[in-house]
Structure formats: C-alpha cells, structure tokens
Design a protein around this nucleic acid. Structure first.
Lengths: 305, 305
DNA sequence: TCGGTCCATGCCGACACGGCATGACCGCAC
DNA sequence: GTGCGGTCATGCCGTGTCGGCATGGACCGA
C-alpha cells in the first residue's frame, strides 16, 4: 500500500548494497527494513535484490527500479513542495483592485515589490471605482483593495499603507498660483474658489475629508462635480476656471501649464489596503507583509514635515 | 505516510466534486474518504477542498494537485508495470552462447523469433566453443546454451530444440560424390574414408555419435582432427582428400565445388537448449517458450522421412 | 574452529485505516 | 416555517500493517 515509502526503503538498500547500513540511514531497525523490501518484492512479484549473507546485489528488475525510482520520488517531492507553497504564501494568486488615485505610484510600486519578493504569487490588478472595490472585497470577489479614505466598515480589515500629502492642482494662470507658489497654499485661500471634486457618492470619506479641511480653515469652496474619468476632466482646471485637490503622486505626468501646490499646513489622506476580515490566505498575508515592508522602505507612513 | 493512496483519494473527490460519489468509485465508505482527505490536507498544511455541505470545490492548492497529481500516479504506475515486466518475462536480458554449428540457421531463427515475440528481452548471443558454453551455463555466467549433443549433465536442463538431419560434405570430385549423389550416401560407404572431425575433447557426445553411426553401418573411417575454426578447415574437404559430416543447415553457403549429401538412412543429431536447472528467470522461461513455438512452426522436431 | 558480520524470522505493541452509526448543516418543497 | 433528503464530519471499534526487540542461521575471515 505505502508504495513510495517502500520504494525509498528499497533505494536505500540498493544504494548501500547493505541492509544494516541502509536501516541506519533510514532510522529504522534492520529487520523492519528487511521485511519491507521483501514485501515490496512480493507485491511486485519480482526479486529485486539477490542477497547472500554477505552481499546484496540488485537484480535486473532492481536495477530498473534503482534507475527510475529516484525520479519518481523527486516528482512526488516536487509536487508536495508545490502544494505546500500555497500554505506558506510563496505561491498563490490574488486579485487586487485599486483606484485611479493610487495608479500613479502606490499600486505600481506595490506590484513591483510583489514581483520581486513573491514571484510565485500572481497578482491580477485592475483599476476599479471606489464603490466596486469596497463591494468586491466585501463580497469576496476581490481579495484586496487599495483605496483612499477607506470606510470603517464591519468585516473589512484596513491596513494603513500610506499617508499621502495633498496638494492643489491649479493652472499657472490661476490666482492661487500667483501667491507664494513655492511655499504652497493655505486651505483658507480656497474660500469661494471653484473646486473640482468627485461626487460625494463616489467616495464619501474622501469628499468629506476634503471639505473638512476647507471648513476647518474657514473656507467654503464652490464644488464642481466631475465625472469618474480623471484626465479628461482636467479641462476646467487647465482653463483656469477651477482647481482640484489630489495627492502628491498626482503631480507626475501633469499636463503642461498645471502646477501641484502642496497644502500648507501639510495635510494627508490615508491610503489603505482593505481585505476581508478572517480567512485570509497565506498569499494575501504575504502581500500585506510585502506592502508593509514597501511602505517602510519608501517612507510612506512618515507624516510630512 | 501512504501518500499515493491519499493522492488517489483526493483526485477522486476533486474530480467528482463530491465525497459520496468518490467514495463509491473508490469502494470505500464516505467517512473513511473524508478523513483521508482531511489527513492529506493536514500533512500538506493546505486546504485542498473548500467544502460546504452541498458543494465541494478545489482551492488553488487543490487545483494544482488536481493538475499535476495524475502525472505522478501515471509515473508510479508506469514504474510498477516496468518492474513487473521482469516478472512476467516481457522484460529482461539473456546471454546466449551457441556453437558454430548452430550459427547458420538455428540461432538466427531463434533470435529473430525472440525479437518479434519478446522485444523487451535483450538477448546477447555469442558464438562460443562447446566447452565454454557448457561451463558457462553450469557456472551461471551464461543463461542459455545452444549446442549439438548436449551432455546429460547434472544441474543442466536440456530442452530439445531440433532434430537436424546429418549429411556428408564432399568435393564434387570425391568418389563418394560419384555414386548415387542424388539419393544420399550410406554410412557404410565411409569405411576407410578420411573423415574430418573436431577433436573428441571438443564435444565427446557429438564425436561418439558420428563414430557410432559409422560403426553401426560397419564402417571405420579414418579420422582427421580439424581445428575449431570452421571455414578455413574446409580445405582438406575442398581438395577432395577428405569428407566431413555436418547438419542440414551447414549446406547453405557451401563453397563452390562442395556438395552436401544426406546420410541414408536418415540420421539426425539432437540440438538442445541448455539451461541451469532451478531459478530460471521469467525471461529465460519466455525464451524457452518462444523456442518451442519456433521449433513447432519450423518443423524442427519432425524426424526426416 | 571460532567469532564477527549480516540478513531473516518470531513475537509483540502501537497506530493507521476502514466500516458502521450518528451528528450537523444546508437547500428545497410543501 | 417546517420537514425531508442529501451531504460531509465525527465517534467508536475491529483489523491489519509497521516497527522494535530478541534471536536464529548462514557465511567469511582469522
């Protein structure tokens, strides 16, 4: 029945050409080994070893087993190792959803780190709307989400990944760009300014946080709702008719004529990885660990000075 | 421990996606199957199947096992089958020694039949002297011998393979060729004729049988001893100075000017396969069987009319 | 001839395996 | 909602396998 063990036993004897030494190598007693090999021979119906009291030699059938047996054991080992890979998080697949806002730097960096630290884990990442990400993770169709201002929702586990400094995107011609452009912009200056934001429904936490920043500075901007599409909606900003607020990573790839001015005093938005509470697979645990390492190495969690 | 069995069990469940049906297929009870799969999961440290009371689905790790597992089982099966091949005589190797006298037809035919009937058996055949063949088989360095007039020796098992009709090789110019050449030669006519034979030491049985044939016919030939080399020693025969006696198969490839004239009344010499008594391997048994079939098909055992 | 070495065998305890009975859970129908 | 059928898990027990120990038996070399 236990074919592979017996094969291992036989191979030890055939290699050592000696039952006693093979038994020591296998950490079993010699009689047990003797009987197991005999049993293997009985099952196969072939004499595998020609034994005299002082010599053990493989027969032809034994030689065949000696040649081809190790490959079988290796194949088995390889298979067990492969399966175990799923247990220790070195193998697996993860579906990740991230918002446009994380697409410029955070998500790519995380994916890069994963491909280096855990090449066995296949991460399929897609840009999705905030609502779809939250719903997907909650429903289990998505393993991990990467979002700004994650909702403090039951069942969802939030892992703070980054504190992203916020800033204003303004046209070079806009009044706010004229002031202390180098030093940044005080939210108080946003009073009455046309501010381009996603609809509150899209990500209430983020909307509220932005508005809260303004309110705390005593400013009441005039909100213009923009569609979900990002780049195309820059136009009101580009024309100087409005401004918008994005994270620091949004400054890369800005169209010519637009400036990113940090809010002063420094204001940050939290970027979280969200996962479903219990039953996280080893692969997901691994991703969270890689994410934490990446955040530390990149200084993502240090508040701006 | 019994990894392959558990793998088989798992595969059955994963394929059926149902423990109960898989258990039936495996001819074990469902609880036993359930526990074995659980045990496999515990050993591998991975959940292989995600079970709800009404659905069984492989996890990622389970899918991997489902993909690669069958190949492992096949490899194991193939190995067992291969080894068993040595038991049923479909695989093996045999060393065969045969005398020059069998080299013209008997041995080639036998080897041909073996390559067709038992291609898995590697027969390494060599021409050897009678003495070496007998000694080799007796000592176990040779598996099978193919000889004329095998010695009735203890430990050697003789298997009659062929009754070979004997005849005279004479020069076309020799007086014996002049008589009733078409009808054959009576041994009585050998009285006083120079007869080329191997030394008696070489194969006493054969020597004695030839002399016995002559003696029974009242003839006393004059024996010339020839060396072991066959072809080169035809010369005394070719020159017409002597004659020799060989089997019917010796007539093929006769040098021009030489005739093979059957002895009349028909006289045969026994050609045997010799093997060592006990412990014959299945491959050798197989060869003996193929040899018997060949002898029957070729009519080797029918006495000449 | 004697001791050493090596494999085989007898006996026994531990444990793994499978069967049976039963429990727990889910989906479906009424 | 309640009951029923289907499905997988668990508890318990008998049996067979495995390994250990002690010992036997064969062969080799001194």
């Amino acid at each position: 029945m236990s074919e592979l063990r017996r094969l291992r036993y036989f191979l030890a004897v055939a290699e050592e050409r000696n039952f006693t030494r093979a038994a020591e190598r296998l950490h079993i007693a010699q009689p047990a080994l003797s009987r197991q090999v005999r049993e293997l021979e009985r099952e196969l119906g072939v004499e595998l070893l020609s034994r005299t009291t002082h010599k053990v030699e493989p027969t032809e059938a034994g030689l065949m087993l000696l040649e081809r047996g190790p490959a079988l054991l290796d194949a088995a080992d390889s298979l067990w190792r492969g399966v175990r890979g799923f247990a220790d998080g070195s193998l697996g697949s993860i579906s990740l959803g991230y918002g446009m806002s994380a697409g410029y730097e955070t998500a790519p960096q995380l994916l890069l780190a994963m491909s280096e630290e855990a090449p066995g884990i296949e991460v399929s990442a897609r840009v999705m709307s905030f609502a779809d990400i939250v719903a997907g993770v909650a429903a289990g169709t998505l393993d991990v989400g990467l979002v700004r201002c994650a909702p403090p929702q039951q069942e969802l586990v939030l892992t703070l990944l980054r504190l992203e400094r916020q800033g204003l995107i303004v046209s070079r011609d806009h009044p706010l760009a004229q002031g202390g452009a180098a030093g940044g912009v005080d939210p108080a200056e946003l009073d009455g300014v046309k501010l381009l934001l996603h609809a509150r429904d899209h990500n209430p936490g983020h909307y509220d946080q932005i508005m809260d920043i303004c309110a705390k500075a005593g400013a009441k901007p005039e909100v213009l709702v923009r569609g979900l599409d990002f780049d195309a909606s820059y136009t009101p900003v580009a024309s100087g008719a409005a401004v918008t607020i994005v994270g620091e990573t949004g400054r890369v790839g800005l169209p010519a004529g637009l400036l990113w001015l940090p809010l002063v005093p420094a204001t940050t938005v939290e970027v979280h990885l969200i996962t479903r509470g219990p039953n996280r697979s080893p692969a997901i645990e691994r991703l969270l660990k890689v994410a934490a390492d990446t955040a530390r190495q990149q200084g993502w969690l240090q508040p701006p000075v």
